[in-house]
Amino acid sequence: MGTGTGIGRVRGLGSAKSGAHHWVVHRFTAIGNLLLAPWLLVSLVRLPDLGFETVTAWLSSPFSAVAMLLFVVSTFWHLRMGLQVVIEDYVHDEGNKFASLLALNFSVIAAATLAVISILKIAVTGGAA
């Protein structure tokens, strides 16, 4: 292993092996979003009103609850990966990058969990407080 040039330092080490995984999962979740986001938009526009009873009745049906859960998982996974790339592109200082990615992961996982618990509660109780 050489020490002079960049290519000399990495030659023979092989690829990181997991580089394509991020790219592929970003596409998988993109296609998931492509199915689920129009479903949510059409469902909301078709509701007669956005009052509490109407929305909880709609969201407590098994089909709506499952589609909404999948929507949250797909979009939050996708946005976590997208914002990670943005951070990696613009935050060059290693310490700041580490802190930004930590904050991103914590906030996305917390937000998605909040959404999942909310959907499950509505699905199980039908909105009754």
Partner: peptide
């Protein structure tokens, strides 16, 4: 993508949590 992540994410969570917290 950034607008949707932050704006869309916050609005969706606020709406779902408000809905799950009762009438």
């Amino acid at each position: 993508g950034t607008i949707l992540s932050i704006g869309g994410g916050v609005m969706l969570i606020a709406w779902l949590v408000a809905l799950a917290s009762g009438q």
